[in-house]
Amino acid sequence: MEGKAKTLPVHERFHSWQGEGVHLGRSAFFIRLFGCPVHCPWCDSAGTWHPDYVPKNVERFTADQLADEASKSGAKFAVITGGEPTIHDLSDLTTALKERGIGRHIETCGGFPIRGDFDWITLSPKWQKLPLMDNLPLASEFKLIVEDAESIGKWISTIGSSFSEGRPVWLHPEWSQHGNAEVLETITRCVKERGDPYRAGYQVHKLYRADLLDPNSRESAPLGGDESKGY
């Protein structure tokens, strides 16, 4: 007798466009999974892990169900994100997507083993859980979250030896600081002074509120799950 199909806990799955990085502006199907042990205080997806926002009944889907939805969307690639998606074994999901001719992208902090076959890996390191050394060479692009004027220099000192001109290093203002002139000027100075591979980044989809046009997308919890930070 065959065993029950494995499932993944899904916070939301929706069709939008990639709002960050090299694939900015491209149609994409997003699969946001529940669970994250990292708990960044400024997390913009706290609904995937914060006890005040995670629903009592978490929906679960098989790899085939998710891949079928991604295929029906018409998007050329799916972005698996979270939370921290690599706490789950994503091998079945990436296989199902590949069988349907859909590109497999992932957004991860890099702090856990990456299980699955991906053709694009966005590695966004977090201080709360530094990336595994084995994951750094796997990154297609890096996304550094710039919390303050010192953030970029600290990341360069910590993992800068992994940065090369062939792989972009995006500098994103932490969202609660996206209007902070000092943070924005720090990013601008770095790009002007260092050049490639450093690039100024931004979460453009938030300006459009693009994700919310899909009824399966959820309103975000406040940053870090803290109402006082909010949007």
Score class of each variant (00 low, 15 high):
Leu171Pro: 02
Gly21Arg: 03
Gln177Tyr: 11
Leu130Pro: 04
Glu227Cys: 04
Gly21Glu: 01
Trp127Val: 07
Leu207Gly: 13
Gly101Pro: 06
Gly74Arg: 07
Asp226Trp: 05
Leu24Thr: 14
Asp211Glu: 15
Pro41Thr: 13
Glu107Leu: 08
His178Phe: 13
Glu84Asp: 12
Pro113Ser: 10
Val38Ser: 02
Ala28Leu: 13
Arg104Asn: 09
Asp211His: 15
Ala210Ser: 15
Gly111Asp: 01
Arg104Phe: 04
His172Cys: 10
Ala28Thr: 15
Ile145Tyr: 09
Glu182Trp: 08
Trp17Asn: 05
Phe14Ala: 01
Leu93Asp: 00
Glu69His: 09
Leu33Tyr: 01
Val146Asn: 00
His50Asn: 09
Pro173Arg: 10
Leu33His: 03
His39Thr: 07
Asp44Val: 13
Ser45Val: 13
Pro41Gln: 10
Cys40Thr: 02
Leu207Arg: 13
Asp196Ala: 09
Asp52Met: 10
Phe29Ala: 06
Val183Gly: 04
Ile31Thr: 06
Arg189Glu: 10
Asp214Leu: 00
Gly201Thr: 01
Val183Asn: 01
Cys109Gln: 00
Pro125Arg: 02
Ile114Pro: 00
Glu227Gly: 07
Pro125Ala: 05
Ile145Met: 14
Gly230Asp: 12
Cys190Phe: 05
Gln18Ser: 11
Trp42Leu: 03
Val146Trp: 01
Pro85Cys: 14
Arg60Asn: 12
Leu33Trp: 02
Leu132Thr: 01
Gly101Cys: 07
Tyr53Gln: 02
His205Asp: 14
Cys190Lys: 07
Leu123Lys: 00
Cys36Val: 05
Met1Asp: 12
Gly224Glu: 00
Lys76His: 12
Arg209Glu: 15
Val22Gly: 01
Leu123Arg: 00
Lys229Tyr: 06
Asn135Tyr: 05
Tyr202Asp: 09
Arg194Ala: 08
Leu8Met: 01
